[in-house]
């Protein structure tokens, strides 16, 4: 039998495993968050996870638990953790496809502000731009509204775009994206 992970790489893997242990308590043992208001991070874009950890540490993004956890990480830790989670498979949360009328409204809203200009045409994101497809419905709703109210303040560009998007369109977008 081939033993994987022997040698220095194993030590590094252990180190990362130690660091991410705390994450699983909320983000889930197999990638399904324990609460619907908590985002999926398994399979999320590495650059995005890194930037969020960085912003929690800087205080640019507010969350008592995440700021406390991120405060202990250095840049290399954050990059390694981001890489670790990005390579995990995205979990299926079992969220239903949105009805046709909801999808049409969501796509009209998308066309107006141009979400796909950054999140790309299947809403998979890339690098520092997050995947939205299949993200938790509740988290998507909360996040878009938090950008709108500036409760989430670490991306003013998103705040501008959400302020340009009517609340009913945000509701439709959250349902549509969750069901992808």
């Amino acid at each position: 039998m081939l033993l994987l992970g022997a040698g220095p790489h194993a030590a590094l893997a252990d180190s990362i495993a130690d660091k991410v242990e705390v994450c699983t308590r909320c983000h889930g043992q197999v990638g399904k968050p324990t609460d619907k208001s908590i985002p999926v991070i398994w399979g999320q874009q590495a650059g995005y996870i890194y930037i969020q950890l960085r912003d929690f540490k800087r205080g640019d993004r507010k969350n008592e638990i995440m700021q406390r956890i991120a405060s202990g990480f250095e840049k290399d830790d954050m990059l390694a953790i981001a890489q670790y989670f990005s390579q995990k498979p995205w979990p299926d949360l079992g969220q239903p496809r949105s009805p046709k009328d909801v999808a049409e409204r969501a796509l009209s809203a998308e066309h107006s502000v141009g979400c796909t200009g950054c999140h790309l045409d299947h809403f998979q994101g890339d690098s520092t731009v997050p995947r939205l497809a299949g993200q938790s419905h509740e988290y998507l709703t909360k996040t878009m509204n938090d950008f709108r109210t500036r409760a989430r303040g670490n991306n003013p560009g998103m705040t501008d775009l959400m302020l340009a998007t009517p609340p009913d369109d945000i509701t439709a977008l959250a349902q549509y994206l969750a069901g992808l």
Binding site: S112, P156, G157, T159, D160
Partner: peptide, 23 residues
């Protein structure tokens, strides 16, 4: 063309508003 004001966001998207296609 919409305008919103926010300080420099350290390398993040900084539009100062939004251009929106008219549905």
């Amino acid at each position: 063309y919409r305008v919103e004001s926010s300080p420099y966001p350290n390398g993040k998207l900084w539009l100062g508003g939004a251009f929106t296609a008219i549905p």
